[in-house]
């Protein structure tokens, strides 16, 4: 039915998309490899930044900059709340155990 893809191969979106995917993969790599809880938070931030870039590019390329601005500002607010709570949990963990090592987080299993 469709002869051409909805986002064709030459579309400038794919340039933005490649960079966002790189950012997201960097974030995922950071989360999986690091042993420091703060770096896990940084990895989470990197991933969200990649997703934000996709939203910004989508708004810019479809001409819906107004909508995408609204979405991204909301997204940034939500993201700040999440990261603040996550940092609070890391602080709580540090006060309990005195370490920021992820390998100490293994008391729950089964």
């Amino acid at each position: 039915m469709m002869s051409e893809a909805i986002v064709p191969a030459g579309n400038p979106f794919w340039t933005y998309f490649i960079f966002s995917v790189l950012l997201i993969l960097t974030g995922l790599y950071c989360i999986t490899v690091t042993r420091n809880l703060i770096r896990v938070l940084i990895g989470m931030e990197l991933m969200t930044k990649g997703a934000t870039l996709i939203l910004a590019a989508a708004g810019y390329l479809t001409g819906n900059t107004g909508v995408s601005q609204a979405l991204i500002i909301t997204l940034i607010v939500v993201e700040v709340v999440v990261i603040a709570v996550a940092a609070g949990i890391v602080i709580g963990w540090y006060r309990k155990t005195g370490s920021l090592d992820t390998s100490a987080m293994n008391s729950l299993r089964g």
Partner: peptide
């Protein structure tokens, strides 16, 4: 969240 946001971005496009 990252997966859902990326998906929302593509669907929005």
């Amino acid at each position: 969240t990252m997966l859902m946001l990326t998906s929302i971005g593509i669907l929005f496009l």
